[in-house]
């Protein structure tokens, strides 16, 4: 089946947009994972809080941008609190303890959201100005999805600046490479950890705020996307923000194009119902196959941070 060029452009945009969304979540995850050596399953909870808080603040301020800022600030504050109370005690423990503890936090967060906002999914729409389609490259594309791409790229630039151009970034890079040496040089690594954790929480909340208008804002929404975010982190190389960006875009494109191309490829081989069913099953595996291939060729991921 020949693919119409405008459709190909639209699907590439879709892949980019999914990738950028994944990058927003994976960036925070990879920072925390790589620099603090902490597996944080509760990262998805910040994503969920981001979406719920944005929905609530939109109701209060009636302004989407302000609501997103409010949600991100709240999530960062919450991140600091959780780092001080809970995460601090986990750095010296092994990964299994961290998984158990942060999984417990996830359950706690889900129950808290259920008690505060109720079990039924809540409503969050794009801001009116972006709730329409715009024409790009000759195709009608939802404006809000373009905004997601823009926000994601802006965050990428911000992180590049933060990590490459600032003193904090230098310490973060040093901490990711050799934590003991940074400690030996007399840097207060604990404060860096708190900062990194807060940045991670804020990024996850931003992702949730941007995802809320197109996805269901519901209890447990973070766990669904966290698995994809971990795939991105593993593909990109643990601790590498650049790896997270490349990995996220790869996963977004492979997932989107897999869902589109597999059905038409299989339609030539099987009857429509079988082809549709098989393609669906294969498409949901495509990103895991991508991960397997990347790991087979580069076990440390695409952009390994040396340690």
């Amino acid at each position: 089946m020949a693919i119409d060029p405008s459709l190909a452009i639209e699907q590439t945009l879709n892949g980019l947009q999914l990738g950028v969304m994944l990058f927003l979540i994976a960036a925070g995850l990879t920072l925390v994972f790589g620099i603090m050596d902490l597996i944080n399953l509760a990262h998805g909870s910040f994503y969920m809080f981001g979406a719920y808080l944005t929905a609530t603040f939109v109701g209060m301020f009636d302004h989407f941008g302000l609501a997103v800022l409010g949600a991100v600030a709240c999530a960062a504050a919450l991140g600091i609190a959780i780092e001080l109370v809970a995460m601090r005690t986990l750095y010296q423990r092994d990964h299994l303890d961290q998984v158990l503890a942060t999984f417990g936090l996830t359950l706690l967060a889900n129950e808290a959201v259920k008690m505060t906002w109720g079990p039924v999914p809540i409503f969050l729409n794009p801001p009116a100005a972006l709730d329409q389609t715009v024409t790009v490259f000759g195709i009608a594309y939802p404006a809000f999805r373009l905004a997601i791409i823009a926000v994601g790229l802006a965050v990428g630039l911000f992180l590049w600046w933060l990590i490459r151009q600032t003193r904090l970034g230098m310490l973060i890079r040093a901490g990711a490479t050799n934590r003991t040496m940074v400690l030996a040089l007399g840097v207060d690594i604990r404060r860096i950890f708190t900062t990194v954790f807060a940045i991670g929480a804020a990024l996850a909340a931003l992702a949730g705020a941007m995802a809320g208008p197109i996805l269901a804002v519901q209890v447990g929404m973070g766990e669904e996307i966290l698995i994809l975010a971990f795939v991105v982190v593993v593909i990109g190389g643990i601790g590498s923000v650049r790896g997270a960006l490349v990995g996220a875009l790869l996963v977004g494109l492979v997932d989107t194009l897999g869902r589109i191309l597999l059905p038409s490829a299989l339609a030539a081989l099987f009857d429509p119902a079988t082809a549709a069913g098989t393609a669906g099953a294969l498409a949901s595996m495509s990103i895991y196959m991508l991960m397997a291939v990347v790991l087979a060729l580069r076990p440390q991921g695409l952009f390994p941070t040396s340690r």
Partner: peptide
């Protein structure tokens, strides 16, 4: 599945 953009384009 979360995002249906690709399917909607098709």
């Amino acid at each position: 599945q979360l995002d249906y953009a690709a399917e909607l384009a098709q």
